[in-house]
């Protein structure tokens, strides 16, 4: 898929995020928007998946370890054809199949329930291990927040993945720099992130998470890396695409009201015009 098409899809994913969170009157737009380009690349280009057969045996797997950014995953899945985009505003509503955090039993295309930080990466490691045990060649991807890596379980999982040389595993860290209580370096500084994964025997790639050429090159490099898992540390802007949400920790877990929603959609429609 060419970059222009990816950008258009990413913008549709962002609109879906804002619409879902507005419909829910709650949720996490900031980290969903920062990872929107990544979600788009994974589901529209990188992963071997089939929206018509979400549980296809040897499909690639994705685990959203930073599960609170479910709106981003849901919007990507909906826009990719797993379920109707029109259902996104039912997010977090009673009876909806779009739970506040990903639920694999409810939502087509969700490979693992997640939301309690630090646990998703372990499940992804288990999936990668299953592929190795069964001598299958599917790949496993997991997305972590840069605040999430403060959880010790992330490093238990990383130590295991490095030790077991799980080269079918790609860990992506969304380095948008902000967590609920503020800047990650002010809360509990996790830097240098790349050096940490290197120390755990990962092949590490640093990229701009909003540059599709860089994203594509990184995943190609990950696929070609043998004998060790890959960590892609992607620098991103929290709230990317919505003017007033960008780089604002306040939009980590807050829904826009009707006026704010209108402004957000106008911002994104502007981007559509530029991409036309």
């Amino acid at each position: 898929m060419d970059n222009l098409e990816l950008k258009r899809n990413a913008n549709a994913v962002r609109k879906g995020i804002v619409t879902a969170v507005h419909g829910a009157k709650a949720g996490h737009p900031g980290g969903s928007l920062s990872a929107a380009d990544l979600f788009t690349f994974l589901y529209f280009e990188e992963m071997n998946i089939d929206p018509k057969d979400p549980k296809k045996a040897d499909r690639d797997r994705f685990v959203l370890s930073k599960g609170h950014t479910a709106p981003g995953l849901y919007s990507a899945l909906a826009n990719r054809g797993y379920f109707p985009v029109a259902d996104l505003p039912t997010l977090r509503h009673l009876g909806s199949y779009l739970q506040g955090h990903p639920c694999m039993q409810e939502t087509p295309g969700v490979d693992m329930s997640s939301g309690s930080l630090g646990q998703g990466i372990s499940a992804a490691v288990g999936m990668a291990l299953a592929a190795k045990l069964d001598k299958k060649d599917y790949r496993v991807y997991t997305l972590l927040g840069d605040g999430e890596i403060q959880e010790g379980q992330v490093w238990e999982a990383s130590m295991f993945a490095g030790a077991r040389k799980l080269d079918n595993l790609t860990v992506i860290v969304d380095n948008n720099g902000l967590q609920i209580d503020g800047k990650i370096e002010d809360v509990c500084d996790p830097y240098p992130i790349d050096k940490k994964f290197e120390a755990f025997n990962f092949h590490v790639i640093n990229i701009d998470g909003h540059d599709f050429d860089a994203i594509r090159a990184a995943f190609k490099e990950a696929r070609e890396t043998k004998g060790m898992p890959t960590a892609i540390i992607m620098k991103t802007t929290k709230g990317k695409g919505v003017s007033y949400m960008e780089n604002n920790a306040g939009w980590h877990g807050k829904a826009p009201n009707d006026e704010e929603y209108a402004v957000a959609m106008k911002d994104l429609e502007e981007i559509d015009k530029q991409l036309a």
């Binding site: 693992m112 646990q119 499940a123 490691v125 299953a130 592929a131 010790g152 130590m159």
Partner: peptide, 25 residues
């Protein structure tokens, strides 16, 4: 070949088991 020692990391072992189970193990 069917025994996996996860090291002293019970939480991760639990998550790994979850991932294995999603793949039919």
């Amino acid at each position: 070949d069917r025994h996996i020692d996860c090291g002293i990391a019970e939480s991760n072992m639990t998550g790994i088991a979850a991932g294995l189970a999603t793949c039919g193990k």
